[in-house]
Design a protein around this nucleic acid. Structure first.
Lengths: 207, 207, 207, 207
DNA sequence: CATGAATGAGCGTTCATTCAT
DNA sequence: AATGAATGAACGCTCATTCAT
């Protein structure tokens, strides 16, 4: 029956919307309070649902944060794939990625990704449950590395610097929560920071 | 009485030695397990003392980690002050700092400093209890900024890039735990990484 | 209308069939996992219906297990009534009961009845909700007691042993889950056990 | 130092006393409410200590009940060993055991042992954590079996009934909570029940 | 001083029950 | 009637902190 199908897909849509809402709110709270300081109760009440409902969508707190990471990385990957398609230079593509990850709302996510991902506590968790994350993150890193290699091949980038170190340095540009202070002090716009950090990086690796 | 004084100062010395030992062990454990995954019990038993004794030296777990940060920053500051005294160029001084912080045992500390310091959970803590840290960290940042400004004044560094952003970028070089993987894979020595990351940075900010 | 009645009675029949199915499946699961380790979810999904549907038939989990007990006891009573009708001796009747309760599928039920019924957790429950069970169980006990009294009257059984104690001893023969091990080890068939336990009992109460 | 040793042994003694108290109270509560209906909170508050303190003595709820079983079985074994030493007949020894387990306070314990031990929920638990219990219980069963075999050898007991079935029947005499009702009704003293149940059993297995 | 037993608030998780669809 | 998503009370367990010895 059409009705039945429509009904089921409506339910399914609502379910996914709710799941996305939980992820979004949880991300905010984790960002504000940190993983350990955030209770499932707080997430639930901020979403406006009961604690048990969260468990209908995610088997546990750990899976919840892994799902957040997975979602964010997938979004980054989507953006990267979009960037890779166009005809611009490797540097332009990397700059686009830099802007995407450091602009507007995404800079917050990037901070969460970075600060939690690199925290000592989470390493175990990701080692145990987050093998899917490793795959996604490796894809991001490989993509960056590929662009850097391409730039080297074309003679844009300095071939004497190992690509893997370049990649790490590039991805480190995205992480520091410390930039937040610069923004908070109001001297700079996000774009200023991205622009200048990018400038340093690209001049630094220039052939 | 002399004896009494000597006795007292001996006691005091022992006390300080133990305090230092607690800090050292706690740093190791925090680095291995992360702040929240580490229990006061584990720290105490690794030091070989009773849990209560830790509380004779530090009012609480939070104060303990703040003390670790403070001690580490002070060591960094000592090194910085030593570097500032000599006659070398600003770049040489910054490179010395980079090597100091990324070489041998200190790279571990730097990772802890970075990964925990920037983690979302700790921000509140530092905002409430850690104003002394802010002061110390600001001194580090100011020192770097001063060197960068000096380099700009001498025409070495690009004056069009704001010093505060340069400073942040420089300090970001020290943070990423991700470099650990490069080391683990065995392709690089720590020196390689410091050298190349420094190369990128200094070429990036070159006038 | 006939149709309406037929329809209604069809519905009613289906309803009763499902109720019986729920009871049967729930009994199995309770036997496998125990009362507290069994969730309503598991029962429902094993039956192939939704959790809410179980609640259309039984007001709650407690009522469900009480219904199981009631059903099983009624079956025992049916068997007892059948046994009572025939012309055989009291001992033969009791032996028939013993075989009935310890043969084939019923031994499992008897175990459930026994192990759960006597468990400390269930006593409260039965005290509060299960007064119907008490009535049924008392009828079983009375029936056994009556047979024993009859045997005493005819001079078969030892009149010096109080009937109520005899009754309890007889009913205890049925309970122990421990016999399961003997069966599991494969040395004995269920019949062997019933036969021998019966032998001990009847020789024990012999006049 | 004497003082230190004395002090330590005092502490240790207090510790063991407390542990015994917890076991005793927990046994009571488990007996009253059943395992699943009893919360650690309730046990603690009945002992008059905090919940956490219970966990200083037992790693978890499961270990607590296993410890209770182990303690009770050890007491039974002690009594059995004592009985075995004397010069009386096998039957006398088994009767002594019967009295011990069914007299006074111990009948409660026996009930708990029996009702919980045979409950479906606990089987898993004991299968996973309680292998020490199996050993103890097997020793009890072996001891009974040995006495029965001895009686057979001396021509007291009927050699045509398998010892293992006799053993089970004997141990079943101890279990039924149902006897509680007879006691509650006030018609019988515990001794009456033990005496008569024993009479049935021993006449039942008589050669 | 040093100890470590005791505390108890707080958390993640489960699951019987309800009710809108 | 049947569903199953949502609920929320309750529980087992942890661990930072305290304090009597």
């Amino acid at each position: 029956m059409q009705t039945s199908q429509a009904h089921r897909s409506l339910k399914e849509k609502q379910r996914q919307e709710r799941e996305a809402l939980i992820l979004q709110v949880a991300e905010e709270v984790f960002l504000e309070r940190g993983y350990h300081e955030t209770s499932m109760d707080e997430i639930a009440s901020r979403v406006g649902i009961a604690k048990g409902t969260v468990y209908l969508h995610f088997p546990g707190k750990e899976d919840l944060i892994i799902a957040i990471f997975a979602r964010d990385m997938q979004e980054i990957l989507r953006q990267m794939d979009a960037s890779m398609d166009c005809q611009s230079s490797p540097q332009a593509k990397l700059e686009a990625l830099l802007h995407f990850m450091y602009a507007g709302l995404f800079s917050k996510r990037t901070q969460l990704l970075s600060s939690i991902y690199h925290s000592a506590d989470m390493q175990r968790l990701f080692a145990e449950k987050g093998n899917c994350l490793k795959v996604l993150w490796d894809r991001v890193a490989q993509c960056v590395a590929q662009l850097l290699d391409e730039g080297k091949a074309r003679g844009y980038f300095d071939a004497s610097i190992p690509t893997s170190i370049m990649t790490n340095t590039f991805l480190s540009l995205l992480s520091p929560k410390s930039y937040e202070r610069l923004l908070a002090e109001g001297q700079f716009m996000p774009e200023d920071i991205v622009l200048n950090a990018g400038k340093i990086f690209f001049r630094g690796i220039q052939a």
